[in-house]
Amino acid sequence: MSMIDIGALDEIPAQGARVVKTAHGCLAVFRTADDRVFALDDRCPHKGGPLSEGIVHGTSVTCPLHGWVFSLETGLAQGADEGHVRTFATTVEGGRILIDAGLLARRSAA
Rank of each mutant, 00 (worst) to 15 (best):
S71K: 05
L72R: 00
K47P: 04
D35T: 07
A8N: 14
A28T: 04
G75S: 09
G58W: 12
T59Y: 11
E11I: 03
K47H: 14
I97D: 02
Q78R: 12
T62Q: 15
I55P: 01
R107V: 12
W68L: 12
F38W: 01
I4K: 08
E82V: 10
L9I: 09
V37C: 07
R18C: 06
H46G: 07
L27K: 00
L104V: 13
A28C: 09
S108Q: 15
I4A: 03
E11V: 07
V37G: 06
A39Y: 01
F88H: 02
V19L: 04
Q15G: 04
T59N: 10
P64C: 10
A80W: 06
K47N: 11
T74P: 05
V61K: 05
R96T: 12
R107F: 13
T59H: 13
F88C: 02
L104K: 05
H66K: 05
H46I: 08
G48W: 09
V92A: 03
V85L: 07
M1T: 05
V85Q: 04
T62C: 11
E53T: 02
E93G: 01
A77S: 12
S60V: 12
G7E: 00
G48Y: 05
G48P: 09
G49N: 11
T59Q: 13
E11W: 03
V61P: 07
A109I: 15
M1K: 09
C44W: 07
A80S: 14
D10Q: 14
V29F: 01
A110G: 15
D35I: 03
R18E: 05
G75L: 13
D100R: 06
G54N: 05
I4V: 07
R18S: 08
M3K: 08
D10C: 09
V61S: 06
V69E: 11
W68H: 09
F88P: 01
D41G: 14
S52I: 04
A8C: 10
I99S: 01
T91D: 04
G16V: 00
A109M: 09
A109K: 14
G54Y: 04
P45S: 06
D100F: 01
D34W: 05
M3V: 08
I55H: 07
G7K: 00
P45V: 08
S60C: 11
H57K: 15
H57F: 15
P50R: 12
E11G: 09
G48V: 08
T74F: 04
P50E: 12
G79Y: 03
A28P: 06
R31G: 01
G67W: 10
T62S: 11
H24Y: 13
L65A: 15
G25N: 05
P13I: 08
D35L: 10
S108I: 15
V85S: 07
D42R: 00
S2N: 14
I6V: 14
G25P: 07
V19N: 02
R43L: 13
L9M: 06
W68D: 05
A80Y: 09
V37I: 11
E53I: 01
D10L: 13
G94Q: 03
P45W: 11
